[in-house]
């Protein structure tokens, strides 16, 4: 079972990330995925989070309590939710929006300038899809095909292509980051080459 939290502020498409992931997993990746959300009374600008519980069996407890994966797209969200991240878990941040605090915790950290990439594509509104692409690449929890199948109906049809483009941008960047990570491990520990390659193929523990 996986517990995932997307977080940021209202207006960034944080709830949409959870919806797209949940739909992709439960309709196209043959998983059970329950999505819940929480937000402040304000429509935009307040702390906002969506949560997805993923399992091979029916999800009984619908809320995330100790997520394995936290995606933070604002400083406030990072500071609020980082402490609940499970030991050994994965933190994914927008590197332009979140400044990491010194920490001795054993967590994996991946970062991407998702908002900047989205602006390069044409509009910062696509930052959530850039992030979702990056998320899909580094966590391997969801297949990129499933996400693309899930998009119609959840993004406006005339912007579907742009959303797919944004997703691919994040996904490809994620693959690059993984590649670099694998290479640096190989350079550091040349003897452990086989092991590293195997770990890379298996991806994240599920």
């Amino acid at each position: 079972m996986n517990e995932i939290r997307f977080s940021g502020f209202g207006g960034q498409g944080i709830i949409r990330q959870g919806l797209i992931l949940g739909k992709a997993l439960s309709l196209y990746d043959n998983k059970f995925a329950t999505m819940t959300q929480s937000f402040g009374p304000e429509a935009r600008g307040s702390a906002c989070s969506s949560q997805v519980v993923v399992s091979d069996e029916r999800v009984l407890y619908p809320y995330v309590t100790k997520p394995e994966i936290l995606v933070a797209m604002s400083q406030e969200a990072y500071e609020k939710y980082e402490p609940e991240l499970r030991e050994g878990g994965t933190l994914i941040i927008d590197s332009d929006l979140v400044r990491l605090k010194p920490s001795k915790r054993k967590i994996k950290i991946y970062s991407i300038p998702s908002t900047r990439f989205a602006e390069e594509i044409g509009n910062r509104i696509y930052a959530n899809l850039v992030m979702l692409g990056f998320f899909a690449a580094v966590t391997k929890i969801v297949s990129p095909e499933a996400i693309k199948k899930a998009l119609p109906g959840l993004v406006p049809s005339r912007y579907l292509d742009m959303n797919i483009k944004a997703f691919d941008r994040g996904f490809n960047y994620g693959l690059e980051v993984l590649e670099k990570e694998a290479q640096s491990k190989v350079e550091k520990e040349p003897k452990a080459e086989k092991k590293t390659a195997k770990a890379k193929n298996e991806g994240m523990e599920k």
Partner: peptide, 9 residues
């Protein structure tokens, strides 16, 4: 509220 706002298949 929990079931009302919970998304599932």
């Amino acid at each position: 509220e929990c079931v009302g706002h919970m998304h599932e298949k």
